[in-house]
Amino acid sequence: MRSAYDKTAEAESAQMTIEMKLAADGRTITSDGKGVIDLAEGDSAMTITAQDKTIEQRVVDQVLYQKSPDQKAPGGKPWIKIDLKKVAAQQGLSSQQIGDPAQTAAYAKAITDKDVTKVGAEKIDGVDTTHYKVVVDVSELPGGERMSKQLGPTLPMQIWLDDEGRLRRQQIDMTIKAPASASANPDSAASPQQLKMSTVMEFSEFGTEVDTEAPPADQVADMTGKALQGSQQSS
């Protein structure tokens, strides 16, 4: 189980799809993405559809770039960027969940030796896989100490491995406890806000070509400072 991520990364690249569902305060938002990922370098390029809007996204050298056709960034520029390394240095969880698929896939690195359950054989897109339920040690993830306060010490995860031990599907269901200070509700200290997040990633066409470049600098507005301000307010 613990070698699953390494086995997958040996393929160097893959096509991927991501389905994400967020639920909080009685509202649910779903998004779907598809694209390619460089499993060795962590770069990715994908198109995300959420709430009838389509966003073009790239991650290059741990910098997140996004472009929405119907929304201009400050200065009228088509792209925004967020430096995930800077955000991670301040708040570990943010870089994991702000949209970097390589970070999400890397959760498989922290699978523990305990609580591994074999569910059975299943086919995914015609490929034979074995379905397992496993547990992730949150402290082993980047920013794990801070993440543990929001997620707890462990995290349930489901993985589907092909005959070569590579990830074909990964499902993470987590409940994130928001700090009381993040809510305007004075009673929130007794009942912290909760965000439920379900993420399903699928990998196929291993070894596919990935050619991801940062957009031209004059077309990008840097929103890293705003992201850092937001994470400070929720700290």
Rank of each mutant, 00 (worst) to 15 (best):
A88R: 10
A89M: 05
L93H: 07
L93N: 07
L93E: 10
S95Y: 05
S95E: 05
S95Q: 06
S95P: 07
Q96P: 01
Q96L: 15
I98C: 10
I98E: 09
I98G: 14
G99A: 13
G99M: 13
G99Q: 09
P101C: 03
A102W: 08
A102N: 07
A102H: 14
T104P: 01
T104L: 14
A105M: 15
A106D: 14
A110H: 00
A110N: 08
I111F: 07
T112S: 15
T112D: 04
D113M: 04
K114Y: 02
K114I: 00
D115Q: 13
T117A: 15
K118S: 12
V119N: 03
G120N: 02
A121N: 14
A121G: 06
E122V: 10
K123P: 09
I124S: 02
V127M: 07
D128F: 09
D128C: 11
T130A: 12
T130E: 10
Y132T: 01
Y132K: 09
Y132A: 02
K133W: 03
V134T: 12
V135T: 15
E140T: 05
L141V: 04
G144R: 06
R146C: 00
M147H: 08
S148F: 04
S148Q: 11
K149I: 02
K149L: 11
K149V: 02
P153H: 07
P153I: 07
P153V: 11
P153G: 10
P153M: 09
P153E: 11
T154R: 04
L155G: 06
L155Y: 04
M157D: 10
M157T: 07
I159T: 02
W160P: 06
W160G: 01
W160T: 00
L161H: 05
D162C: 05
D162F: 01
E164Q: 15
E164C: 11
L167I: 15
L167F: 09
R169F: 01
R169I: 06
R169P: 01
R169D: 03
Q170A: 15
Q171K: 10
D173T: 13
D173P: 05
M174K: 14
T175A: 12
I176D: 04
A178L: 15
P179V: 10
A180S: 14
S181T: 11
A182E: 11
A184P: 06
P186I: 09
D187K: 15
D187G: 11
S188L: 02
S188A: 15
A189M: 12
A190Q: 12
A190I: 01
A190Y: 08
Q194D: 06
Q194F: 00
L195N: 00
K196I: 00
M197W: 10
S198N: 05
T199N: 09
T199E: 06
T199L: 06
T199W: 00
M201D: 08
F203E: 02
E205N: 13
